[in-house]
Design a protein around this nucleic acid. Structure first.
Lengths: 193, 193
DNA sequence: CTCATACTTGACAGCTCGTTCAACAACGTG
DNA sequence: CACGTTGTTGAACGAGCTGTCAAGTATGAG
């Protein structure tokens, strides 16, 4: 029944794999590199996670849980819903200004695999909707509490904020101007007034 | 002096190569595939364009000239500058709704190569600035002609519109909702009122 | 015609990739 | 201790990749 116990922690390995895919993308990350950095043999990798694409999907799911989890937690914090949305924009701005800013695994994956792999495409679409819905819900609550004018379209606003976040994540990989995110997010904040 | 003449048109080949990189990305596009679709031998490819990365850079430059050229042309059209900006947003919306929408080579390249290749990164940064500047100039002219309120920050607005375009280009590769671009661009248009 | 030049063609070297195979090691159970 | 089960280790496979070499071919110049 019970065989030889694992010598590695599945979560730690998945976290490292996620980081690698995050930094380099799916195609540019090789199995050798993965097993090197994760400090486990190739075969152990295949035993535990399946083939490369299966591993990637699990890493992507982990990213989704972590990041979207943080986002939802932030937006559902007690107090002012609109303040929470503003806090999200602040967090993006701070993150963007980090010199080690490395983009977003979700967006990178959309660009690299969005049209090529239908299964991953559907997954990414779902993640996008989760993000949008979390922002939408916060905006709706802001309207209910009178923080946000009732004549605003919260769905359109949530989508705009989502797009802005994704756009900043890609552009941040090449833009040299340090005030880019500040300018863009200042405009976004004006939409919430 | 003059040797055997070329049997192919350099522009046509470059256009085809650009399309391939556009659809599949840099890493996922092989030399064999390129020479197949371009209908020329590998060696002819290497003779005419250099190695793979050099070919890609030329394809990227071509994309930049074509697309940014169209964008600038649209924004500098005679008549209302603000109307031209609105026309740009309309064009994006129409483009996005196309079922064969395939994103944008610029954004795809940012995601795939933005942090890995410094030379390409600088090139993409320059393209981004060109795009931003074209929109900025149109907005400035709109202000001079009194179409756009003078208290708006045209730089921030131009960057916001740029980010929105890039964001839509990535998200469009996976988003299933057909009203996404409409919602986002409606919000963007409100910024111009 | 001869020759240097430039392009084309096909084969192939060298490498890396994802994946698998076979042998060995560590565990619980009888 | 023997056995089934599971994980590890290291080697190897076949396919695909980028880039190059060598031979053949079409041109203009002398």
């Amino acid at each position: 029944m019970t065989g030889r116990p694992r010598e590695f922690d599945t979560d730690t390995v998945l976290e490292t794999a996620m980081d690698l895919f995050w930094e380099q993308g799916y195609g540019a990350t090789g199995i050798a590199e993965l097993s090197d950095r994760c400090q486990i043999g190739r075969q152990s990798m295949y035993n535990a996670f399946g083939d490369k694409k299966a591993l990637f999907v699990q890493a992507l799911d982990r990213y989704s849980c972590e990041r979207l989890g943080m986002l939802i937690e932030l937006l559902e914090a007690p107090g002012s819903p609109l303040g929470n949305v503003r806090a999200l924009l602040d967090a993006w701005e701070a993150n963007w200004s980090d010199p080690e800013f490395r983009g977003c695994l979700m967006v990178n994956s959309m660009a690299e695999l969005g049209v090529r792999d239908a299964k991953i495409k559907a997954r990414l679409d779902r993640m996008l909707q989760k993000m949008e819905d979390a922002i939408y819900t916060a905006l709706r609550r802001a309207q209910e509490q009178g923080e946000l004018s009732a004549d605003r379209d919260p769905r359109a606003l949530a989508r705009t904020i989502t797009i802005t976040g994704q756009g900043l994540a890609v552009v941040g990989k090449v833009a040299s101007s340090p005030t880019y995110a500040r300018d863009v997010l200042a405009t976004t904040r004006r939409l919430l007034e």
